[in-house]
Design a protein around this nucleic acid. Structure first.
Length: 261
DNA sequence: ATGGTGGAAGGTCCA
């Protein structure tokens, strides 16, 4: 089974890219973040024409929004509110095997990495804390977690470790908090299972750096994790960089995993 | 120190 996660940054304007990506990669399941579309405007017909009859989504006006598109029927999906906000950052469904698939859009965290002065950064850390707590308390199961986690944990997940140490997405407190979430549930970083830790790996390049891909100032903000018991089922991974070079791209590119299901 | 770009909106807010 091939699963893709992609922060699409507006589903409605990026439908042609979605179609092109699915034509080239032929995924079974696509998990999207930042769909930026309310449920009553979700382009169901267009996506079904791309080849996904089974749609699960939760969206709101202007911001956030997550969706799971599938070629195969999934269980009924669930959404959950985080940090007391109804802001459409999580949706989950079960694959036919019973494996749970969780799609997350973690808050970006604003500009200043200080929870005392920056409410958005506090929200980000609180959100991660709630993830850790929740996964520690629910029933054990085979799980896949994907999404835009808005954190680049390894030194090789950013273009310059030193220059980004005080930049939101790569600060020590974020990396430690994310590690804490991972360890609390025995999550495995599925992509890094295939790519050595000393090799740079990015999934996002800022719109504000027009020199891409020459300067390659990227970060790996998009992740695929699996529970320990699924690690042996992982077959391959891919980061679909070429999509960043297309006309009117998202600032994120799809991250792909092939897993025996 | 600032601004650089893009999306949703039709103000600015958010990334």
């Amino acid at each position: 089974m091939r699963i893709i996660t992609w922060n699409i940054n507006s589903l409605r304007i990026r439908l042609p890219h979605l179609q092109r990506i699915c034509g080239q990669l032929n995924p079974d399941v696509v998990c999207l973040q930042e769909t930026k579309v309310p449920n009553d405007s979700f382009p169901e017909r267009e996506i079904q024409q791309i080849g996904f009859p089974h749609l699960h989504f939760t969206g709101m006006k202007s911001y956030n929004g997550v969706a799971i598109l599938s070629k195969i029927p999934l269980s009924a999906s669930h959404t959950k509110n985080w940090c007391g906000k109804n802001d459409c950052r999580h949706i989950s469904a079960e694959l036919p095997s019973g494996t749970e698939l969780h799609n997350f859009y973690v808050p970006a965290g604003g500009d200043t990495p200080d929870p005392n002065t920056n409410e958005k950064f506090k929200h980000k850390l609180d959100f991660l804390g709630e993830m850790k707590e929740w996964f520690a308390t629910i029933e054990p199961a085979q799980r896949i977690l994907v999404g835009d986690l808005n954190i680049a944990p390894l030194e090789t997940d950013v273009w310059s470790h030193k220059q980004l140490l005080n930049v939101v997405s790569h600060t020590q407190v974020e990396v430690e908090t994310l590690d804490d979430v991972m360890q609390s549930h025995n999550w495995i970083d599925a992509v890094r299972k295939f790519v050595p830790k000393d090799e740079c790996l990015f999934s996002w390049w800022s719109y504000r750096n027009r020199a891409w891909p020459g300067s390659n100032r990227g970060r790996r903000l998009d992740h695929i994790w699996v529970t320990q018991d699924l690690a042996a089922n992982l077959k391959a991974t891919q980061i679909f960089m070429e999509a960043r070079g297309w006309q009117k791209p998202s600032d994120h590119v799809p991250v792909v995993i092939d897993i025996e299901e």
